[in-house]
Every structure is written in structure tokens, then in C-alpha cells.
């Protein structure tokens, strides 16, 4: 793992929303094939961190390199990373007017230039990987939350990204549906996908993460292998946070 190249390099990244500083001097490397779990209290900047990686937010200071491309204001950098980074949202954000299959084929057809047949074939492949090929012709609203989130994961995978970002993928789900989504994510991790996951699911983090990142007030407070940080947290803030999460 250590000799793999860096897919994501963040150096001293800062970002404000008005007077509020969402990111303070954050530096983080993610290697090819590495699974990083980011946690922290709400407002700690963890969502902003991953949203900067696929340019849903723009950073003000510092450098972000994704797959060797420095992110800046030019359309060119966006174009170069397009298709490299996939993202799964808390609220799924499926396209409600399109069927599951159409949700999955839109990107491959319009962006990657696949034919309808090729795109459908690829969509069905990924629907099988998230275990809902039988829902292909339904509309998102006809699916449960867990199924919708799995469709969203498949939609991202259809673009065949090198990095997958997850922004609290199970936070909007009913408890009984969390497991099915985490299972799909665990499978994905086993296949060697590079993943950055913002989540409070500590069981998932322990099982899957190569690296744990704890953020508070826009800073990375603690970073390390899960077995180290969970058993012997270096910072009192992280110790207090996991105590709260595990005891609730």
C-alpha cells in the first residue's frame, strides 16, 4: 500500500463560507486503492473536504491534485478530472423523472459517448453488482431509500471512476436499510476501489478503512490506521467524539 502513487493530494487547503472557516490548512493524501473514512461532528468541514475533491466547492488557498491534475478555475482541469471522481450523496439525488436504467445510462451515453446498447449493458452490470437488476425499469420514487442509494452508487460506477466519494451515504436512511448500502460499499472496497467516505458508521470504518481521519472545526485533528486511533486516540477531542458515538 505504501508504495502506491497518490491519487489525491491536498496541501494546506483553506475555505471560507462568509465569515465561517470551513477548512483550515488541511493536508491529506489518498493513495491508489486506499480507503479513507472521514468523521467528525457536524460543521467540522468533512463534507466540504470531499466536495472540494470533485470541485462541487472551490477552495481558496492551498493546492488540490486529483490524479495528477491540479484543480483550479480553468474549465480544462474540470474536463480532465471528469469521470475520474464519482460521488454518492446523502440525499441520493437520483433524477426523479428518469427510470433507474435511464439514470445509469445518461452519463455513459452523453459524456463517455457509449451507444445505447453498450450503456445499457454496462448499467445492468453495475445494477447486478448493487443487487437490484430487477428494478431497472422503475422510477426512483418506487424504490426504498436503501435501493435508491444503491442505484446512486451504481450510477457513479457506470462512469468507471478511479475514486469514489461518499458524503454521509447512510445518514438519510432508515436503520434497517443502512446495512444493505454498507454491504455494497464494503464489496466495492474489496474490489480495490479508492474511496473517501464521510460517515458516522464506526463499525464500517473499523472493517474497511485503511486510514481514519477525524475533523473538528475545519481541521484534521487525528489521522491514522483505525486500529491505532480507536484503541489509543492521541487527541482528547477524538476520544470524546468516539465515546459519544459508541455510547449513543
Amino acid at each position: 500500500m505504501t508504495d502506491e502513487p497518490n491519487l489525491i493530494e491536498m496541501r494546506n487547503v483553506s475555505k471560507h463560507f462568509g465569515d465561517f472557516q470551513a477548512l483550515k490548512d488541511v493536508s491529506l493524501d489518498v493513495k491508489l486503492g486506499e480507503r479513507v473514512v472521514v468523521c467528525g461532528p457536524s460543521g467540522s468541514g468533512k463534507s466540504t473536504l470531499i466536495r472540494c475533491i470533485n470541485r462541487l466547492e472551490t477552495h481558496e488557498a492551498g493546492d488540490i491534485k486529483v490524479d495528477g491534475v491540479t484543480l483550479n478555475d480553468t474549465q480544462e482541469s474540470l474536463y480532465k478530472i471528469s469521470g475520474t471522481v464519482g460521488m454518492v450523496f446523502q440525499q441520493f439525488n437520483l433524477f426523479p423523472h428518469l427510470t433507474v436504467l435511464e439514470n445509469l445510462t445518461l452519463g455513459p451515453r452523453r459524456v463517455l459517448g457509449l451507444s445505447e446498447v453498450e450503456a445499457k449493458k454496462r448499467a445492468m452490470l453495475y445494477l447486478e453488482r448493487v443487487q437490484i437488476p430487477d428494478q431497472a425499469d422503475k422510477f426512483p420514487r418506487q424504490l426504498s431509500g436503501g435501493q435508491q442509494q444503491r442505484v446512486a452508487i451504481a450510477r457513479s460506477l457506470c462512469m468507471e471512476p478511479r475514486i469514489m466519494l461518499f458524503d454521509e451515504p447512510t445518514s438519510a436512511l432508515d436503520p434497517e436499510m443502512i446495512a444493505e448500502v454498507l454491504d455494497v460499499m464494503t464489496e466495492l472496497a474489496k474490489s480495490g476501489m479508492t474511496m473517501v467516505v464521510v460517515t458516522h458508521e464506526m463499525g464500517f470504518a473499523r472493517r474497511v478503512a485503511d486510514k481514519m481521519v477525524f475533523m473538528d472545526k475545519g481541521e484534521i485533528v487525528e489521522i491514522g490506521a483505525p486500529e491505532d486511533v480507536f484503541t489509543a486516540p492521541k487527541s482528547t477531542r477524538f476520544a470524546a467524539f468516539i465515546k459519544q458515538i459508541l455510547n449513543h
Binding site: L56, F89, N93, L98, L106, G107, R110, V111, R155, M159
Partner: peptide, 18 residues
Amino acid sequence: QYEAAQSISLNYRDMMRF
């Protein structure tokens, strides 16, 4: 919806159109 469209790299025209 805009963010989802952006996350699958649709350009402005396709995002609006589809």
C-alpha cells in the same frame, strides 16, 4: 440535481436538457 449532474460530468447543455 445540479450536483448529481455535475458528479457524472454532464456539461451545462446536457444538464439543462436532460
